[in-house]
Design a protein around this nucleic acid. Sequence first.
DNA 1: ATACTTGCTCTACAGTAAGC
DNA 2: GCTTACTGTAGAGCAAGTAT
Length: 388
Amino acid sequence: MTKAVTKKITDASIRAAFKKEVRYLYDSRRVEFHINAARTGGTFYDVVYKGKKRQRTKLAKWPAITAASLFQELPAIRANALADRKARLAVSTYHTAGEVLMWFMQHIDADKTYSVSYVSTASSYIGNHLLAKLSEATLSELNKTRLYRTLYMPMQADYALSTIKGVISVLKTAFARAYELGLIARNPIADITFSSFTTTQPEAKPGKLKPHDLKALIKAINGQPTQKRVFFMTQLLHATRIGETSLAEWKQFSNAPLEWSIPEENTKNNTEHRLPITQHAYDLIHTLPKRGDYIFSSNGDKPYAIRTLERWYQSLSDEVGIKFTSHDIRKLARDCWQDMGIDWVIGEMLLNHERDGLDKRYMHAHSREQMKRALGEWGDVFCVCSVI
DNA sequence: ATACTTGCTCTACAGTAAGC
DNA sequence: GCTTACTGTAGAGCAAGTAT
């Protein structure tokens, strides 16, 4: 095959080239056109000469982009392609942990598939711990010994193991992602895990409220103004999460059948949660005035901020004289159910926990009946303890 | 069991409506 | 107009939760 040279590439000259045995076309505006091997189309390149070396950057594919539109948009297309290329060249020059971590921080911020809470936590760990300790470390210096000395040992003196575990996990994620995308040639963190440094695992703390605290708790709740009282009781009766409870809407409650249906977008595990509630719980909710969609709201059009509800709990906790939070209510309900002899799996289902394969066999109409009975028995406890 | 992600809590601070 | 109480936001830390 021979090569043809033209001063200007046009759609007509490209079509003509396909008929001849031509593979390349050249344009004086520093653009080359390469016809592909299958001769079904071709690619426009930007061309730069660096000494004797010719550097090409892909601009666009023909016929998806015609020559006419390419040359019309040439400055913009060229700028984009070169910026891309520069970015690629720049990232391949990551030499220190700091550079990789900075990239990851910018990456998770720009990539909307990461949740807001992950970006917040990960940025905090990078900004406060990882950059401070590893910023200058070159990729080849990142080994177990280095991390042990500069990251693990200093941190274990001041922070909970769960925090260190989280920090290491962000570090691993950043490097794994950078490696996967070809931004670094080797992943020096790949073989390092949290358990490289300690065999101790972070412990889950037991709930602060014990079943024998229930009476005092109910007494304090009953002393609250109506809206707070209903909020606390709704959460206690159903052991729902604070976020799920705060977003409760009137339309989520039905009378026949008696049910509270929490939509998937409000739950932690993104699965709809249908709770078979009691008549009593239904009536309790409906003692509140209806002002807009949300049940717990100051003005009717938006729900209370979680932070506000946490403060409600803080003052309730002060009144009871035990330091607890909304999540301890959930744990308390769980403990009480256990004491009442409610099946463990039914408890898990009421909490909307993911169950493994074996437990999934429980998923049938019968279990729903048991959930309903459990919540009924749990509700009866309150009728005995108090008048609501 | 380990790895990874998400939610909750705490602190600090800011805006705003209510009460004086 | 000033103070105060209530509500909301943001950043950091911790632990619960799900995925592997």
